[in-house]
């Protein structure tokens, strides 16, 4: 191992974060290279100096003021629900199933307006309770035949349905202009 390589690995060497082989090679190199040995001393001294910095403590009442702040922290509704769902699903389901389930909950929340607190009316109720007042549209379609102009016309008539809701007289009429 050359000096350049040793210097580039010096920081990891003092942290013991190299492979056994690399550690041994550098140790051997340091025994024979005064310049790299000096680099080693200097890196080690820097590491030790930072590790020996005083532990700085917060003021005595800091923790209480922080806990008081947490009292007024508003966790958004969607976040709370996602958090709870993650916890429940994690304890009951495999990670993949949990992830899928949480995605599902998130989608439900988004579709229910949970993300933005904008209330949405239940549209399915609106549809179910709407008065039944339909009109059937009768469409006359004329297939395109060479030499004939295209004709598409519609007219409305009262819709007649039986008990099962099926239209009694569906009617599609093909009209050929050729015969007219």
């Amino acid at each position: 191992m050359n000096c350049r390589r040793v210097v580039s690995l010096m920081s990891a060497y003092v942290d013991g974060e190299l492979t056994g082989v690399e550690m041994l090679e550098i140790r051997r190199h340091l025994d024979n290279c005064a310049e790299c040995a000096e680099e080693h001393e200097s890196t080690l001294a820097m590491k030790l100096a930072v590790s020996r910095l005083r532990t700085i403590r917060p003021r005595e009442d800091f923790v209480n003021s922080m806990l008081a702040t947490l009292d007024v922290v508003q966790v958004p509704r969607y976040q709370r629900i996602i958090n709870s769902s993650v916890r429940i699903f994690r304890s009951k389901l495999s990670p993949v199933a949990a992830a899928l389930a949480v995605s599902g909950v998130a989608l439900v929340l988004m579709s229910a307006g949970g993300m933005d607190n904008v209330g949405q009316q239940d549209q399915s109720q609106m549809v179910a309770s709407a008065p039944y007042d339909g009109q059937a549209i009768e469409v006359k379609y004329v297939p395109q035949i060479p030499g004939n102009p295209i004709s598409l016309s519609s007219s409305s008539r009262p819709l007649v349905v039986n008990e099962s809701g099926r239209e009694l007289t569906p009617k599609i009429e093909l009209v050929s202009m050729a015969g007219r």
Partner: peptide, 14 residues
């Protein structure tokens, strides 16, 4: 420190 704990609190369920 306070910001870190508030953020941790928001996501604590996870």
């Amino acid at each position: 420190t306070q910001e870190a704990f508030i953020r941790a609190f928001r996501f604590f369920g996870q």
